[in-house]
Design a protein around this nucleic acid. Sequence first.
DNA 1: CTGAAAGCGCTTACAG
DNA 2: CTGAAAGCGCTTACAG
Lengths: 343, 343
Amino acid sequence: VATLTDGVDARSSGSVTVKTVAAHAGVSAQTVSRVLRGSGYVSPATRQNVLAAVDAVGYRPNAVGRSLRAAKTPMVGLVITDITNPFYASLHKAIEAVLRGCGLTLMLLNSDDDLETQRQQLDLVSSYRPSGLLLAPAVESSLTKEELARFGNYVLVSRLLPGVDAPAVVTNEQEVMQEATQALLAAGHRRIMAVLGPAAASTTRRREEGYRTAMTIAGCEPLPYYTDQTASGARQAVKDALRARGDITAAVAFNGPVTEGILAGMRDMNLHCPQDLSLVGFTDAPWMEFFQPPITVVRQPVEAMGELAARLILDLIDGRPVENKPHVVPSRLLMRSSIVPPS
Amino acid sequence: VATLTDGVDARSSGSVTVKTVAAHAGVSAQTVSRVLRGSGYVSPATRQNVLAAVDAVGYRPNAVGRSLRAAKTPMVGLVITDITNPFYASLHKAIEAVLRGCGLTLMLLNSDDDLETQRQQLDLVSSYRPSGLLLAPAVESSLTKEELARFGNYVLVSRLLPGVDAPAVVTNEQEVMQEATQALLAAGHRRIMAVLGPAAASTTRRREEGYRTAMTIAGCEPLPYYTDQTASGARQAVKDALRARGDITAAVAFNGPVTEGILAGMRDMNLHCPQDLSLVGFTDAPWMEFFQPPITVVRQPVEAMGELAARLILDLIDGRPVENKPHVVPSRLLMRSSIVPPS
DNA sequence: CTGAAAGCGCTTACAG
DNA sequence: CTGAAAGCGCTTACAG
């Protein structure tokens, strides 16, 4: 290795490594490594010397070399279904804030709620040898603990995996969906539809359960409708439902996009909320507050869910024990003005 | 290297590498590499043999080893200000779809529109030696071409960098903002405020320019208000503005969150759109269509912008020439019902 | 068509 | 307090 005394030359050479810094500072590569990682004892004079050399040669650490040696990357994968769903965007932001503070990078992948895409994305994340995985499984995922084991540390988020007792972060969907349905029942509604997500999603099953419980206790027939949990899918489903059953007077929504879809479908049919249909939305969005009428909605604690998920995966990475069960963060029903008695 | 004849043993040993596969198949590591990459000639028999060994030992490629040897990672960084802004979420989705089809991973980082955070995130992306960078620069970024050069390939998205002639993808903000303002002028409005983003953002400057042009041509005084381009910031700014100038009859918005903030602020003051204030929003959101009134809005071609940005960075990565200038994708003004003549 | 050798940038034992 | 050696998993020349 030639001794480099000219920083500009080293910079322009393209590949500035710890060896370049070491040669410039007149020390060994390991000493440079020690200074940069702040581990082990280094004399103050040597430290200054090395730091000056780092600046002089314009050294930038190479995470790939570090990861290969460490057999692990300081990175956590987050595999969700769709980042354009504001719930997941907020979740990502909350998780990233916590992980960044702990020196971990968050790698985001969309599964498009498709099993084959999810498989590819999991393989991709796995190929980087991440420190952990956060997963909102695609509908009908049949992942086992063995398949998740290759990630070492993993936490499910938002959705569960049937038959797999993994650490998970969810909200008290059944309870709050039951409460939402009861708010409509209390206003006098009897024919209340639930516009749900895919029948096989754990979120649908849990939210549907709360809805059915409330309807059954009240002696009302449950009217569940399943959608692809997008605004456009819900929009069509609502129109089909309302045309088939003109006597429906109220609806509970499964998530934010479905809430939008219900209102869009109503507009298509020239129906008005709440006169023609009372509504409880799910997942608060800013516009729901200044909409006319302001939408009564289940507010999910998305920031708290993200923070908890981040803390759980950090606990696992640092070897602290984490319970293999759903960790529940409570949602709240915000009463606004989209419920009136049926006409 | 011991010959492994038992796949289960190899699997449980933890570290299954090309060598494990090679030993199992009775070939060399390079041959395994050739089969997996599909490059160079391999006899059909050897190929079958290797693929069987891959399955038998449960081999999973290690992207870190590959990247280190290749001195480059098949990854593109995307540094934006805030993923909870739906514009950026849609942009991410569109870019990722194109890149995924070409075998590239998209690495998302939020700068929070903060210079220090942006610096950290750029260093982080850079440490993975990505194949390229897509950047929506934080406000007041003073990045130079030299600083971007370490990424080799880069394209600016949505925002420009003053004085830097880099490839970029933007929309025709001036034109369409001028058109939006003219729509309000045509309805008879004279005192039209523009609720903008940060004064220093290139997006603000370009949109403000179109607004000012229209106002000046019409002989009206421009009334620009600057915000942090969030819904809550705009909400407060609008209330301050309307209290200070009770004669304002119309508003044009800078982006989606600001459009929400204007409507939220109006609700706080018990003002109604369009009777009390006509409005042109910016960046279409689903709720704007079924809102009462449906919001007249500038629809940004976010998918097309994402696709173009992805194609430009792919062109650069593959060595095809790309013009060092803003590439413009046109926005459209969607006339709906939030403009009426002033009362 | 296939293999032995070398090395990408870094850090972990192991010596001094 | 510091250094020489080795190796993480992979692939690129270079030989056969």
